[in-house]
Structures are given as structure tokens and as C-alpha cells.
């Protein structure tokens, strides 16, 4: 007694956490900083769900530590190595380590 009867309960609302968080131990939210850039994957103000338990694959969007700073970027697989996608000349090797893989981008369409 005292418990809801199945079918009698009002519909539960959808929980966005269920959709976005597959691994709650390893998922972190981060906000993108910077200025608008056409053609970029992410915009300033976007909130990223970042899952550290996943391995970065070719062309994945990741958060990486570059020279001690966290940044979001696309990566490519070169042989067995994950590297940032870099074109024109900028081959200079910097300290680079994948921090986590971006699984979801949350973008508010109204100015905050």
C-alpha cells in the first residue's frame, strides 16, 4: 500500500540527463569560450558533454590539453596516433593530450 499503481501514475517527464549522460562517472560538462568563427564545429557559449571513458577515433571532436590549456578540436588518426587536424604549415609540435571525447553539443538559441 502507498505505492503508485502501475498505469495509474501520471507520465513521467523525459529526463535529458538520460539522453546525454551514458557514463555518469566519466561525463563532464564544459562551456566553449572564444569568438565566433564560421565553419567551426562549436560556437562560443555552447555547452559540451565530454565523456572521458571513450577513446578518441578518427575525426572525433575532443577536448584536449594543448600547452596546458583545455581546447575543443577535431582530431585525426595518423597511424596509431591521435593528432589535431592541422593544415597549412603549422606543424610545430605542441604538448597535446586528449582530455575527453565530446558526445553532445548543447546550444542555446536565445541570447543569454
Amino acid at each position: 500500500m502507498g505505492f503508485p499503481i502501475p498505469g495509474d501514475a501520471i507520465e513521467q517527464s523525459l529526463n535529458l540527463n538520460q539522453l546525454v549522460i551514458k557514463n555518469s562517472a566519466a561525463t563532464f560538462f564544459m562551456r566553449v569560450d572564444g569568438i565566433h568563427q564560421t565553419g567551426a564545429d562549436v560556437n562560443p557559449g555552447d555547452v559540451l558533454a565530454v565523456d572521458r571513458s571513450l577513446d578518441a577515433t578518427d575525426n572525433a571532436l575532443v577536448v584536449a590539453a594543448v600547452n596546458g590549456e583545455l581546447a575543443v578540436m577535431r582530431v585525426q588518426q595518423v597511424k596509431h596516433q591521435i593528432r589535431p587536424i592541422v593544415e597549412h604549415g603549422s606543424t610545430q609540435e605542441s604538448q597535446f593530450e586528449v582530455w575527453g571525447v565530446v558526445t553532445t553539443i548543447i546550444r542555446s538559441m536565445s541570447p543569454s
Binding site: 563532464f28 560538462f29 564544459m30 562551456r31 566553449v32 569560450d33 572564444g34 569568438i35 568563427q37 565553419g39 567551426a40 564545429d41 562549436v42 560556437n43 562560443p44 555547452v47 559540451l48 577536448v63 590549456e69 583545455l70 581546447a71 575543443v72 578540436m73 577535431r74 589535431p84 587536424i85 592541422v86 593544415e87 597549412h88 603549422s90
Partner: peptide, 23 residues
Amino acid sequence: TTHWSEIPTVKGYSKEVGQPINN
């Protein structure tokens, strides 16, 4: 990890050149 106004920020990079978007 518990307050939206305090979540960490990450720098955005442009798709083409992998260069930082200047702050």
C-alpha cells in the same frame, strides 16, 4: 561539476586550421 555557472571553459578551435580562435 555541480554548478552550471561554474563549469570549466574550453577554448574553441576553428575547423580548418586547428588554430586557436583568438580570445
